[in-house]
Write a protein that binds this DNA or RNA. Structure first.
Length: 499
RNA sequence: GGGGCGUUGGGCAAGAGGUCAAGCCGCAGUUCUUUCAAAGCUGAAAUCGCGGGUUCGAAUCCCGCACGCCCUGCCA
């Protein structure tokens, strides 16, 4: 147990963004690695943007990824009173001042212009910055609206040592007097985070690099409040293929973590992939590995291994096969292929249940058969949903699976002789006492020899007759998995309805 | 406009002055084969953003430039 405390502090946007998920993961890994605490805090100070439902999305994503938190979720809005108190404390101490500039003069459009102009002429001091205390109090008392701004010192600079980006310095003159408290009394982000992080005893702040510049302001607030700054570690960003921002508006569902859950990803696989986006094991001996279990990630994780350069989330829009990052897809498939059956089976079960294909006997008497089929399909499954897609023919009793048109043409209709051969082959199968890979193969090859046709013709025809597909596992495994009765029925069915 | 951060094959990346610049994804070919995969093998793909410098020697150190991203809000 250590006294390290980290937090993940997303705003409630209704879904967990992959970038946010990566931030959460790194915090979680750091906490688990160091034996510290991982805290979840929802940054809902922008009241217009938050609702219970919006929070739910974040929680769902984290739960699916298996990122459990030790404390929270806390809600930033619950601490507004403390934020306000801090603002007044700073006012009291002379670290802040009331700005009576009417709100209309400071709205978005005008502010941008002013900022540009101000930059051209150097920093312009806010006219209320040095208003006497008496006048400030008087105007406030008379009901004139104001914001509270931080009073950034005129001379000197701030600095902090980022665990990833190294020493960061910035002249005070490049930092504007930020607003701490809105005229309606609402505390603003930079104040709120600092107060909350102090309150929650956060020792390390691991977050996106988009906060790097703002960190200086926060460091200033820590100092003014007389508290030590935590250690900062900023993470490189995850960009879209055009190196722009990865956003839900532009890129759709691909940015939301729940999409990966719904698309048949194994959480561990996605975690593995995410961990390698912007981080790699610092010790060179693991540099040529890609697959890491959760335990290994926890053991290996360190702030030193975090990269500085932004990473690109590589996917092709409109390409069904590469709908998301190819390496993520590969990794998921690698996990599906290799994890132990007892870990894979529950995922498959859930998928089958969703599509109404599950039967309780798969947990009982038909367990061995179930595992046999899963073993067959997993080799070719890129996502968990493939178990119901490609696997459907194994789980239905009738013929309610799709016949691929090209497969039918190529394997069933190409040779007219099949119309006669298939029912006979079915009879040959029906006559078998033992129905195994070996006996099926022997029967089929013997049958082919007797009829003077190539075994391949019957093999491919049978595959399509039994599964509707042109591709799939080795045929004799398919036949044995489908079982004698269904195999016989499907061969006959194919012969008079599709051949 | 100002400030900050970054730049190794299409993507993820190893590398931390001195072997032909790892590995993975993806791509092409090949072996195997009853299909598709898998697996194995082979291959294409990087003048280490560009230009200077330091050095016997630089992807690695220094300077300049270009490009990209972030911040610059009474958003978070």
């Amino acid at each position: 147990m250590s006294d390290i405390r980290v937090r993940f502090a997303p705003s409630p946007t209704g879904y967990l963004h992959v970038g946010g998920a990566r931030t959460a993961l790194f915090n979680w890994l750091f906490a688990r690695h160091t034996g510290g605490k991982f805290i979840l805090r929802i940054e809902d100070t922008d009241i217009q943007r938050s609702s219970e439902e919006m929070v739910r999305g974040i929680l769902d994503g984290m739960e699916w990824l298996g990122l459990d938190y030790d404390e929270g979720p806390f809600f930033q809005s619950d601490y507004a009173e403390k934020h306000r108190a801090a603002a007044y404390e700073l006012l009291e101490k002379g670290w802040a001042y009331r700005d009576f500039t009417p709100k209309e003069e400071r709205d978005d459009a005008t502010v941008k212009q002013q900022a540009a102009e101000a930059a051209r002429q150097g920093k312009v001091m806010n006219p209320f910055r040095n208003l006497s205390r008496e006048e400030s109090d008087a105007r406030s008392k008379s009901g004139e609206p104001f914001v509270i701004r931080f009073k950034v010192p005129e001379e000197g600079k701030t600095s902090f040592d980022d665990a990833v980006y190294g020493l960061q310095e910035r002249d005070y003159k490049d930092i504007e007097d930020l607003v701490l408290l809105r005229s309606d009394g609402h505390p603003l982000y930079n104040l709120s985070v600092v107060v909350d992080d102090i309150l929650m005893g956060i020792t390390h702040i691991i977050r996106g690099q988009d906060h790097l510049s703002n960190t200086h302001k926060q460091v200033l607030i820590y100092q003014a409040l007389g508290k030590p700054s935590p250690r900062f570690a900023h993470l490189p960003l995850i960009l879209a293929p055009n190196k722009g921002k990865l956003s839900k508006r532009k890129h759709g569902e691909i940015v939301s973590v729940t999409t990966y859950r719904d698309s048949g990803f194994i959480p561990d696989a996605f975690v593995n992939f995410l961990a390698l986006l912007g981080w790699s094991p610092a010790s060179g001996e693991h540099a040529d590995r890609e697959i890491f279990s959760r335990e290994e990630l926890i053991n290996l994780f360190s702030l030193e291994g975090i990269h500085k350069a932004n990473a690109v989330f590589n996917f092709t829009e409109g390409d069904a096969r590469n709908w998301t990052d190819q390496k993520a897809l590969w990794m998921n498939w690698e996990y599906i292929k290799t994890i132990p059956m007892e870990k894979l089976a529950p995922f498959v079960k859930a998928d089958l249940q969703r599509s109404g294909l599950w039967r309780d006997e798969y947990d009982g008497g038909r367990r061995a058969w179930f595992e046999q089929v899963v073993t067959l399909i997993r080799e070719r499954a890129r996502t968990l949903t493939d178990f119901t897609n490609h696997g459907r023919p194994y789980f239905v009793d009738d013929f309610s699976f799709e016949f691929d048109e090209a497969a039918v043409k190529k394997n069933l209709q190409k040779d007219p002789a099949l119309k006669e051969l298939l029912p006979q082959l079915a009879d040959a199968f029906a006559a078998l006492d033992e129905f195994t890979h070996e006996t099926i193969e022997a029967a089929l090859r013997k049958f082919a020899e007797e009829k003077g046709v190539k075994a391949g013709l019957l093999i491919n025809a049978t595959r399509t007759a039994l599964t509707g597909q042109a591709v799939g596992p080795g045929l004799f495994d398919v036949v044995s998995a489908v079982g004698k009765d269904r195999a016989v029925a499907r061969l006959k069915h194919a012969a008079h309805s599709v051949c």
